[in-house]
Design a protein around this nucleic acid. Structure first.
Lengths: 167, 167
DNA sequence: TTGGAATGTCAACAAGGCTGACATAAACTC
DNA sequence: GAGTTTATGTCAGCCTTGTTGACATTCCAA
């Protein structure tokens, strides 16, 4: 396998096993950084990462149904329910009976839920912002392109629809 | 907050909360894709993600000590030990008493360990390769830049030293 | 020779995945 | 209108992988 440090060789070598291994490790270490700030805050409140994910997606799409949230999160209803129950009991999430279909529950954040979500996402956005700023706009575009190509097609759908939602 | 869809506005708007939120979700969904193939294989062999991580880093740096591995993985020795013990018992990892310092254990993959590691990393590299290919070399560079900036400084050190190792 | 470092191990616990089974209410279908 | 399907909730039990605390062993180094 050829050396990878020669200038101008990146375009030829960006698919070597070594380059791919570095990408894999970068994902591993970066994801740790990515979750560390929210994890710290969640710990103080006696919540876990699963609560954060629920708060995030309820905040992004207020009124979404339990089933939709299950689809997005890709966990079992038993697992989600455990998390959701504590959030409802603690007054962070409100679960309203559906208007159109009364079997459904529409999920909303309460004031307190919005506050915690904001605290968590402020921390996470802070790190993301710093990373974006230090890497620059072109790098950010590449970052997003690679991540998107790495998703499962079904997940990519959720992601794309979220994009259109905003426009 | 301004609209984000106007052409040419990306450079100004790549730090809006909305852009940051999309980056956060991209990380979430992409990480799921990133781990899904190895997870499937691991399930067949009755192992978990923790085993994969150990195999990966032992393969990357044969002979590394338990303490070094603990540093890299960022878990407690009890947690790592449970995983390491099953790997040693199953004949995937060999733990040799250190030559220089006999308190240390140097970790190596056995033939069987190498085979499983290869199976796992082939699957993971396959997805990474496809993502890299579809996004192109410039995108890959941006991807790596942003990920690196997102790591904790201490993790970045491990990552950087891994880079120099290869050169 | 003694203190501290590296390692291993036991026990107990928690979060958050999972499966399986079952209950209820609402909606849909024939 | 009866029967089926759908959306949700809940109980019980299991697994992985993290945690803390305690303790033993071995061995390097001052």
């Amino acid at each position: 396998m050829a050396e990878s440090s020669g200038p101008g060789s990146e375009n030829l070598l960006f698919l070597t096993d070594e380059q791919l291994r570095r990408g894999i490790e970068a994902m591993f270490f970066a994801y740790r950084g990515f979750t560390s700030d929210p994890d710290r805050i969640l710990g103080e409140h006696d919540y876990g990462r699963a609560h954060h994910r629920a708060l995030h997606f309820i905040n992004r799409t207020p009124g979404l149904t339990v089933n939709t949230l299950l689809d997005i999160l890709g966990v079992t209803k038993q697992s989600l329910n455990r998390v959701l129950r504590t959030l409802v009991d603690d007054g962070l999430v409100e679960s309203r009976v559906g208007t159109r279909d009364k079997r459904e529950r529409n999920l909303f954040l309460t004031e307190a839920g919005l506050r915690l979500e904001m605290e968590l996402s402020n921390a996470q956005r802070g790190r993301m912002r710093a990373a974006y700023r230090s890497a620059g706009p072109e790098a950010v575009q590449g970052f997003r392109q690679v991540l998107e190509a790495m998703m499962d097609p079904e997940l990519r759908r959720h992601f794309a629809s979220a994009r259109e939602e905003i426009q």
